[in-house]
Simulated assay, not measured.
Amino acid sequence: MTAIRWPLLVRRTHKWLALFVGIQVVLWTVTGFYMVTVHIDYIHGDHLVRPAPGGAFSPSNLVKPTEVVASVPEATELRLQRLLGKPVWRAETSKMPVLIDAQTGTKLAPLTQAQVEAAARSVYTGDPTIVSTKLLTEAPLEMQTRKPPYWQVEFAGWNRPTLYISPTTGELISRRHALWRVFDVAWMLHIMDYDERSNVNNPLLRVATWSAVAMALSGAWLLFWSIRWRKKKKA
């Protein structure tokens, strides 16, 4: 029976593991470096939008909440907010929010493109030049976690700053830009979830991780064996 030549077996195992998982280890390093180098607040696009304006409205000039509830009996929640600088009542229902002009009591129709663009400009901090405005009924890749419909408003700029606006309330849903999109690709490569980009415990990642651990352990064993072998040969 032939004896197992452990150094040869471990060396071959280490070599094939390195071929299998080496590229992914490089990707882990590069993508991890990007994700820790660029500040997460910048990735989130906090610099693209300004804080919501403060200040209260005078209740004496507004429609009473009881009147709003009477006009929207299916409402489960009612709150006062702003829409393009004007007060509106927002009534939450099981289907979608209903906006009511807080000064006249009339129900508001879904926002027009002009109103959406005005709402986007009112919160955007950069160049107000809009290059594209679209009402989306299917979620793009960068908004897979958000259910449409919503307006996509893209502004001029090298980083393609994009705001997503609610068609019923005019509120900002999310913001995207070039460095966020790079981060999204880096995150996908880092966690090896090439479909939904959210599962950090997928089988492919687990296999690659344990393969990398085995590669590191086999490399450490070879280093230890090499040092001992050289000492023994010298003696």
Rank of each mutant, 00 (worst) to 15 (best):
M1W: 15
R5F: 06
L8N: 08
L8Y: 12
L9K: 07
H14A: 10
F20D: 03
G22Q: 01
I23F: 14
L27F: 05
W28N: 05
T29E: 04
Y34C: 05
V36C: 11
I40N: 10
D41Q: 14
I43K: 03
G45V: 01
D46W: 13
D46K: 08
V49M: 02
G55I: 14
A56S: 14
F57N: 01
N61V: 13
K64N: 06
V69A: 13
P73Y: 12
Q81T: 07
R82N: 01
R82H: 12
R82Q: 06
P87V: 08
T93V: 07
S94N: 08
S94F: 09
K107G: 11
A109F: 06
E117V: 03
A118L: 06
A120N: 05
T133R: 02
T133D: 05
K134T: 12
L135M: 08
L136Y: 03
T137C: 06
P140Q: 06
R146K: 15
K147C: 13
N159I: 02
P161Y: 02
Y164S: 04
S166P: 06
P167I: 11
T168H: 11
L172R: 04
S174L: 02
R175K: 15
H177A: 08
L179I: 08
L179D: 03
V185H: 15
M188H: 05
R197P: 06
S198D: 14
N199E: 13
P203L: 11
L205Y: 03
T209M: 15
V213A: 12
L217R: 00
G219W: 00
L222I: 04
K231H: 02
A235R: 04
